[in-house]
Structures are given as C-alpha cells and as structure tokens.
C-alpha cells in the first residue's frame, strides 16, 4: 500500500507553511510500502494535523492524498471502515480511549471489531505484560495515568492487521525504559506484518531504524 501526497497544504497553516521550508507540505512525496518513516517537527507545525490527514479524519487541506493512486475523498464510509480495520492502524496523540470501558475492553474492542481477529485474546495479556500494564487491564481507563493510557493505546493499535501504522508522539509520556520496550514491540509487530509506519515526534531519536526522516 503506497501513500502519495501531492502539494498538500493545510488550510489553517497556509501562511506559515508557504513561508517555511518543509519536506512534506506542498511537495509531492510517496510513502512506499513497509517504509519506516520519522517525521520530526517542533510543536505547532502540524504533526497531528498530518497524522489526521494520513488517517483521513481531517480534510481541511488543499492538494491531495491518495492511497494506491485513489484519493481519500473517493472512498465510501464502509470502504474507509474496512481500511481502518485491515490496512491502517493509528495511535493518536490524545489516545482516544473510551472512559466507560476498562483498559482490556478498550483493546478488545479493536481486536473483535473485524469478524476474524488478527490476534488471539491471550496476546493482549502478553503485550500488556511486556509493556508493564497488565495490572491495570481491568481498571476503567479513566483512572489510568497518561503513560499507562499511552501503552494501552499502543497495544490497541497492534490488535489489528495493518500495512501502515500511524503514531503521533506515541512515547511522549513514557520513560526511556518503557519507550524501549514499546518500540521493540511495535517493530516486531510491524515486521510480522511487513508493514510500514509513520511516527511523529519533536526530537531526534534512535528507537527505530528509520529509513526516511522528514522535517515538517
């Protein structure tokens, strides 16, 4: 699955974007299948906006984003749902867990959303063990710390099949050791699927072997 951006300019950031030099905005670029991509940028330059564009939940841009040559705007709601269940997964910066569910249910929701789950249920506990959140699985997600929520959101994103994983500052509230573990798990899961990912962050990091790094 190849993602093409052509002359994408976010409408709210138009002035700013056109003045500055950017590797992404207002350019024609391709995210090739299985590429590991880092997008580095300071705050306020549109990292989250870009992830939302790539995941197609925000549309306020000029230019176009296409998936395998087909622009996002041409997909129906049911086609989009299928893509989100099978081909593109996401870790939002604001995590977006359901407060009324437990941590486990939040993960399970994503696992059973498609009729044939990618992972068996035991995999949840296994991943939670690795990331050190198995003790909070049965707690309401509203009561978790931000760092715990972040790890739950990462596990949730890994429950489904995907060819691309979009991550928006996924380790912002994790310490070095936990980040290490999470990155390792993500790398393994991506490798198992032969999938690529797009990760945004403020700074330079060595959590993954990035094939491409863009400055936003």
């Amino acid at each position: 699955m190849e993602i093409q951006l052509s002359a994408v300019v976010p409408v709210p950031l138009r002035e700013k974007v056109l003045q500055q030099q950017s590797d992404i905005w207002n350019r024609d670029i391709r995210f090739l299948p299985a590429q590991t991509i880092k997008i580095k940028a300071p705050s306020g330059t549109g990292k989250t906006t870009l992830v939302h564009y790539l995941y197609n939940i925000r549309y306020d841009y000029t230019g176009s984003i296409s998936v395998d040559g087909k622009p996002w705007s041409s997909f129906s709601k049911d086609q989009l749902a299928a893509i989100r269940q099978q081909q593109i997964s996401v870790v939002f910066q604001d995590l977006r867990l359901f407060d009324q569910l437990t941590a486990l249910e939040n993960i399970e929701l994503k696992r059973v959303m498609s009729p044939q789950p990618y992972h068996p249920q035991e995999k949840i506990r296994e991943m939670a063990d690795r990331l050190g959140v198995s003790h909070v699985l049965n707690q309401s997600s509203a009561t978790l710390s931000y760092g715990e929520k972040q790890r739950i959101a990462i596990i949730r994103a890994l429950m489904q099949p995907f060819q691309w994983l979009m991550m928006d500052e996924p380790f912002s509230h994790l310490d070095e050791a936990n980040t290490e573990k999470a990155a390792k798990l993500i790398a393994e899961e991506c490798r198992a699927r032969n999938a690529g990912f797009v990760l945004t962050d403020l700074d330079h990091d060595n959590h993954f072997d990035y094939q491409v790094t863009y400055l936003l």
Binding site: I57, K77, A81, R84, R96, F98, Q100, M113, S114
Partner: peptide, 15 residues
C-alpha cells in the same frame, strides 16, 4: 462522541 470515535477507530457504519 462515542459513535464518532468508533467510526474513527474503524467501526463500519453498517456494523
């Protein structure tokens, strides 16, 4: 809010 998030996460409107 919840339904929007479900759809964002990939729940099909049909589901």
């Amino acid at each position: 809010k919840e339904i929007r998030l479900l759809i964002t996460l990939g729940a099909a409107p049909r589901q």
